[in-house]
Design a protein around this nucleic acid. Structure first.
Lengths: 356, 356
DNA sequence: GCGAGTATTGACACCGGTATCAATAAGGGA
DNA sequence: TCCCTTATTGATACCGGTGTCAATACTCGC
């Protein structure tokens, strides 16, 4: 190459583009690769002039460190894991979105790992996942956050994690709280305020903490209004549409039929509505129904469903910030630094005044 | 260490577990790491005895190659990318599931990258994603598969990809076809068979190939039944619930009101149903409505929506198999090796005989 | 002007694999 | 029996970063 020729020869035409490496930067900036490494890692032990010179070269070259190589050397990849069970599609999507809201632009990527907790082999699946990739961290939404065996595996492999749960956990610094009970309380107060006195509850499975939280919040709300939850009107179902239909049928068959029904999620609420209609009664007039989640279904049903909005996406953002704080390049929104979200009631047409 | 002492000293108690590496295997099997590498990569140039000896050690140690290190050395990571826009949550989830069905157990992971094609910067986002990770491959579901700029970027970075599209593309070996028009044709024949003569169509945006496919299939189906699609009854909407409501209102306001409406997706169908109800008419009796997708919404609505089921999850499986064939450890199902899926009509209560 | 303390920097090994190519061993034909 | 092939194997460099620790350069106090 003659002197004065361009420092960076154009790659041969058909040759696939080659990313500049730390070595290229070091050579052009006339420093060692270690110093470049210091600059990209924001080490304070670099002379200002040197730093600027290197930064210039980095910009010129469009250099970006290779996450794979970094991962190998530092034993920490740039991958964030999301483990979940029980795909309530909207929850999953919202959580994914929330995480991506935060990590986008920081060179981190989101790797998803759905699993099935009822499958006795699921822990091995997770183990493989954790062990293979040296994840930067893992986020555990409510569908798995209460699984202590799972959390034990994460600890065992020394993988950082944050749990999203309906209620505060032992490790507040590793968790985000969604305060489900608050939402259920609002639902109860809403129905009581409409004049309902015989109010039923259809819950999710007892194996979910959220079922308990929503129930206890509901009971609390009733109490505020001077009401109690009749044990016979407190039904266990399965968080599914079908189980909602069945619970609804049982309620409709009761001699002292409830005039309002609070359901632990929208899926069951939709099922309950179906059962109510089968008996010829009108939703929102004869029987009020309230759900939980504010899933897309809720606003598209007819009549539209009164429900509790749970800010899942925000909880995903908060969890990621907790998990990755220092590895994020962009400063997170102040409101997303909180450790909890609060549900709100969305009133639609499925709940109306009690007939007197 | 005295001779006869255990070859592999137990790690100190608190020391975090250290994965066995290829060096450990090589030492114990008394071969070079390259030979071990050959074994794990199924090279044919290894003596049978040697291979067996190494396999034994691998099993004893529970050794598994480190995907990060492999990625660095081979310039191909073990990550499969899924790029999508416009989250119809169910599509997204189904596609994710389909991919995971296939790659699970092969040491590959799924990295998701939602994007927004209307954002003029979206290509740069994708570029960063592609460039940083040296993806094993990328899957492009229908929401992005027709974006030629995007595909150009993938080619530019020499990243393998498979597109899922409603209609055959130029590169059949890199695509999976969902044959949307077939489903629309069935919908048309179904409605015509019920005696409807004035049938409307509410389509998605013209910018989606799927909108055209569904329309043309629908027209074809009508033709089979000796009908034509009246231009005034062929409305463009936006694939959203809200746009469905608006389209429905326009249709209901027409002097020659249609007795049946085929919608390009379930979201719009739900909106149309709402508009129909606003006029006091009954779905399935006065006006029949058919959707497309068989989203969860369809079966939970009241009355339940007749719709076209698109096997998205299967298309995700097929796409992954196309993409990764040789890198998969488990033999794929024969039916998933096809290059196309076929929609089927799911008849529910929202479509009924035309009133005479 | 000199020794000590602090600020910068780089040489080199290493992370855990893969690629290249030469070296060695085994088999076959003349 | 000897040379040439073919089958196996390993030495070594390399992928693109990070960690350790020593070396060098300054600055300050006396």
């Amino acid at each position: 190459m003659t002197p004065g020729a361009p420092q960076r020869p154009a790659p041969a035409a058909n040759e696939p583009r080659r990313r500049p490496t730390i070595n290229d930067v070091a050579r052009l900036a006339n420093v060692s690769k270690k110093t470049v490494s210091r600059v990209i890692n924001q080490s304070p032990f670099v002379n200002k002039d040197t730093r600027e010179r290197i930064d210039t070269v980095i910009k010129e070259l469009g250099y970006a460190p290779d996450p794979v190589a970094r991962g190998l050397a530092s034993r920490r990849s740039y991958l964030v894991g999301l483990i979940y069970d029980n795909p309530n599609p909207q929850h999953v999507i919202d959580t994914q979105q929330g995480i991506l809201d935060v990590i986008r632009g920081s060179g981190l990527e989101l790797v998803i790992h759905p699993c099935n907790r009822r499958d006795k082999d699921f822990l091995n699946g997770v183990r493989g996942f954790i062990d293979r990739q040296k994840l930067a961290g893992v986020i555990l939404p409510s569908s798995v956050s209460e699984d202590e065996d799972l959390v034990a595996v994460l600890r065992e492999y020394d993988t950082p994690y944050v749990r999203i749960a309906s209620v505060p956990l032992d490790e507040p610094e590793h968790s985000i709280v969604t305060n489900d009970s608050e939402g259920a309380r609002q639902a109860a107060e809403h129905l009581a305020g409409l004049g309902h006195r015989v109010i039923a509850h259809v819950s999710g499975p007892d194996t979910f903490r959220s079922s308990h939280e929503r129930r206890s919040g509901f009971i609390e709300g009733l109490k505020t209004a001077g009401l109690e939850l009749d044990k016979k009107l407190d039904l266990r179902a399965g968080y599914t549409f079908q189980s909602g239909i069945e619970a609804g049928r049982r309620l409709m068959a009761m001699p002292a039929r409830p005039t309002a029904i609070f359901c632990g999620n929208d899926e069951m609420a939709a099922g309950v509505c179906q059962a109510v209609r089968e008996t010829g009664l009108e939703i929102g007039k004869d029987v009020s129904v309230v759900g939980f989640d504010d899933s897309p279904l809720a606003s598209r049903m007819w009549p539209a469903l009164t429900t509790v909005l749970l800010p899942i996406r925000a909880s995903g953002r908060m969890a990621s910030i907790r998990l990755l704080g220092d590895r994020l390049t962009k400063e997170p929104q102040e409101e997303d630094r909180q450790g909890e979200v609060h549900p709100t009631l969305v009133v639609r047409a499925s709940s109306g005044p009690a007939k007197t």
